[in-house]
């Protein structure tokens, strides 16, 4: 699995397309009120799936662990939402924490981890 992280609009999806050859019809973009579909080669906006989990009371990391075999060869993209002030709202705090935990787990499982900064990729692993 390849994990791409980075702040909003930093070129994560573009990197998946260019460096990993991901095609448009291979991309599934999560939304806060949707589920997740591991049958796609590239799962984008994992942080949005996590927000939905927080709202439903689900544990996003457990869901990922339960489906490990389905994303073992995937490209996962998650936005870095960890560098701001601790959010005032409890939901945003829970979101940040759950996304952080999931990211750390995914990074430990990943074959490669790449961080995007202003369109420039940096290999972290």
């Amino acid at each position: 699995m390849h994990l791409i992280i980075g702040g909003a609009y930093q070129g994560k999806l573009d990197h998946a397309r260019k460096a990993l050859g991901v095609k448009e019809d291979e991309i599934y973009s999560c939304t806060e009120d949707g589920g997740i579909d591991f049958s796609f080669r590239c799962v984008n906006a994992v942080e949005e799936f996590v927000l939905g989990c927080v709202r439903r009371g689900d544990d996003a990391a457990e869901i990922f662990k339960a489906h490990r075999s389905e994303w073992e060869d995937s490209v996962l993209i998650c936005r870095d939402i960890f560098c701001g002030v601790v959010p005032m709202g409890a939901e945003m705090r829970a979101w940040r924490e759950a996304t952080g935990r999931l990211c750390a787990f995914l990074a430990s499982e990943a074959e490669t981890v790449t961080r995007m900064f202003c369109g420039i990729d940096e290999r972290l692993k």
Binding site: A8, Q10, D80, I81, P87, R96
Partner: peptide, 27 residues
Amino acid sequence: YSDAERYDDFTESYRRMLASIDRALAM
């Protein structure tokens, strides 16, 4: 670009536009 907050449409479009300029300049 790296905080956990849901912004209003104006702020979000500002962030998106600034990022597109940043990326053009970085290139």
